[in-house]
C-alpha cells in the first residue's frame, strides 16, 4: 500500500505538471520577446525578438519535457551513478 501510493504520487507529480509547464514556458518566452520588441527597443526590431522569444519558449517547453523523461529513466539505476 505504501509502495503503491508512493509510486502513484510520483507519477502524478511528474506527469501531472507537464502540460502546464510546457504552456507556461512558451508564454514566458513569447512574453519576454514581446517585451523586448515593444518596450526595450520600442518597436525598432519588431517582430524579430517576438519570434526569437517564441522559439526559445517552445525549446524550453520541450527541454522540461526531456527533463521529466530523463529523471524517470535515471530512477531505476543505482544512486552512485550520478555526477
Amino acid at each position: 500500500m505504501a509502495k503503491l501510493s508512493t509510486e502513484m504520487i510520483s507519477a502524478l507529480g511528474n506527469y501531472g505538471h507537464i502540460g502546464f509547464t510546457v504552456v507556461i514556458a512558451v508564454f514566458i518566452g513569447l512574453g519576454g520577446g514581446i517585451y523586448l520588441d515593444k518596450y526595450y527597443f520600442e518597436g525598432a526590431t519588431s517582430p524579430w525578438f517576438t519570434f526569437i522569444g517564441l522559439a526559445f519558449g517552445i525549446a524550453a517547453g520541450y527541454k522540461s519535457l526531456f527533463d521529466v523523461l530523463r529523471s524517470q529513466m535515471e530512477k531505476p539505476e543505482d544512486e552512485d551513478t550520478e555526477g
Partner: peptide, 10 residues
C-alpha cells in the same frame, strides 16, 4: 535562455 525560461516556468 532555455534553462532560465524553464526555471521561471517552474
Amino acid at each position: 535562455p532555455i534553462e532560465l525560461i524553464s526555471n521561471i516556468a517552474r
